[in-house]
Every structure is written in structure tokens, then in C-alpha cells.
Design a protein around this nucleic acid. Sequence first.
DNA 1: GCGACAG
DNA 2: ATCTTGTCGC
Length: 219
Amino acid sequence: MRVNQLHPWPATVEEAQAIQDRLRPQVELTGPASFGLVAGLDVHYHGDDRVRAAVVVLDAATLEVVEQVTAEGRARFPYVPGLFAFRELPALVEALERLKTTPELLVCDGYGVAHPRGFGLACHLGVLTGLPAMGVGKTPFVGEHAPPEAGRGSWTPITLGGETVGRAVRTREGVKPVYVSPGHRVSLETATEQVLRLSPRYRLPEPVRHADHLARHPA
DNA sequence: GCGACAG
DNA sequence: ATCTTGTCGC
């Protein structure tokens, strides 16, 4: 698929933050409610700064793999909480460009608008591709939330500065919740519905599990 | 000031 | 993220 050209690469924390602040107004929090093809994205780190990005496209109805690609690269930015996207973006964009199919939803390993400046990795990828995108985090990052009830499907809001920016969603009975937030062109309601639909069996959504596996053990 | 902080 | 064994449970 075609991805917008990457903006000039930031050399400092201030420049990276400025890019986030400049792109943030482009984020849309409404969009389609259902999707035919859904992509999971993940990045594996190895060595000092080597990264391998993986994108796996699934049929949303059957959860069968339709296409999978990887891309190798280097992390071109230090790890700074809140600027995490700048480590993974180049490799993920390169992998997306290798896709023959065009997914209708990107499920990212990380956060969307539940972010210190309201512009996490899922927002960044959504804006660059123009596709609906959502973030699924494995650990709490920003804001406040109460633990959801133990049953699968229960959730509680994640609030930040009085705003609801995401949800802690229980995808498996009695297992730690995942932290869901919209990235681009999806509502929080749809993101919640999708994470549950895509996680019929494990804590993490199938597309992300496939991407994680592929990034670690490339074909 | 200090610690904590998506992956 | 990564460095790492065994163990419990479905």
C-alpha cells in the first residue's frame, strides 16, 4: 500500500514533540464501525539498535492470515516515554509499503490518543496512512482508571485531565486488561468492540499476536 | 528535587 | 524491548 512520505526526521526531543503537536489536529475520532481486513503491527528489537517490523493482515471475519510482511532497520531515535513512536515508525512504514493488500484498520502495539500530548504511535500511523488506527497497550501509561470487573468484555474508562481518552478492557476472564485508545478515524466505542472481536481467545488481539510472532521469528 | 514513564 | 527456567493450568 501507499504511505505518505515521512516528515523530516527529528534530531531532538523538542523537534519530535513539535511534529506530534503539528500532526495532532489531523486526528479524527469517528469513522467506520466494521472492517474487512485488519492489520496487526509490532516491532522486535535485537542488538543495540536493530529493529524488525512486522505487519500481518487478517480477514476480520475469519481471523485467517491474508498477508504478512517484515522490514529491517535501525532505531533512529532514543527511547523516550511519549516519543516511543519515533523508534518504530520508519520500519513500520517500510513494512506497510510492502503490503500488496490495503488493510482497513491498523491495530498497533502501544497507545493512540491516551498519550501525554494526545498523539501516540497509533495516531501517528493513522495520520500517515490515512487509515483507521487504534492502539492496544499492555501496561498502563497515562491517566487514571479503575480495574475493570473480572469478566471478559468488562471495561473502565481511562481519564486524563478530565477527558476520557481510552479504556482498560478485559479481553480474557481474570487476566490483566489491555489498554485501548483510538488512534485515527475510529471511535473509542468501535475500538473497544474491535479489540474484543479480535481477541476471542488470548489477552492480545490476534493481529498483534501474529505480528509479534513474525517480528521475532521471521519466515 | 525525585521518581515514574507505551516499547 | 531485552537478559532467562521451571512450573502451573487449560
